[in-house]
Amino acid sequence: MIELDNITKIYRMGKVEVPALRGITLTIRSGEMVALIGASGSGKSTLMNIIGFLDKPTLGSYRLEGVDISRLNDNQLAELRNKKVGFVFQTFNLLPRASAAANVELPLIYSGGSHKRERTMEALERVGLTARAKHKPTELSGGEQQRVAIARALVNNPSLILADEPTGNLDSTSTSEIIAIFKQLNRDGITVVMVTHEPDLAAKTQRIIRLMDGKIISDEKVN
């Protein structure tokens, strides 16, 4: 369960303070599939980064599964990211010189543990890319690269997947494939939070949270 209370984020650009989030209070229950939508600059990506503790809030408290995130140090946050959270980015963010399998294996290297190869292949199988394991990202299509990124996100069996405009760089066929994968992961019990600005993608989730100027302006269930 994600509990955000009065989360505020202010960026400093020289002497000017730019507020990106102004007092976000929000609860996302385990197993939900949520879309964060809003115009660019509305703060939806910032919010997602804070949920994945890639970034720290200026004010406010954040509890993940009952743990107060602000009390954790960098190492503990790294470990939590490694074990609980999987990220999917608009630009894929794969290591360009490493094979698909090596990219998927990356979180396992930092978590230790055994059966790396099996778990890597299992994750690739879940996104239907077993045949492409040895290919480098440059040898894969956009949709395939994003599926590698998803495999990397789920290889460590996270409870939360955060996706920032995951289909922003993809064609419509790849988009529906990616969305289908997310829906499947959600059915498997993983909480999915997806940032998007496409209304019809958002409509495929269970709940749509709309941001504007760093504030939540609506929060509705999808029927």
Binding site: G52, L54, D74, N75, A78, E79, R81, N82, K83, F87, N93, L94, L95, L106, P107, Y110, S111, R152, N156
Partner: peptide
């Protein structure tokens, strides 16, 4: 950044 996002420590 990628390594840190997937859990690499300092």
């Amino acid at each position: 950044g990628i390594r840190k996002a997937v859990g690499a420590k300092r």
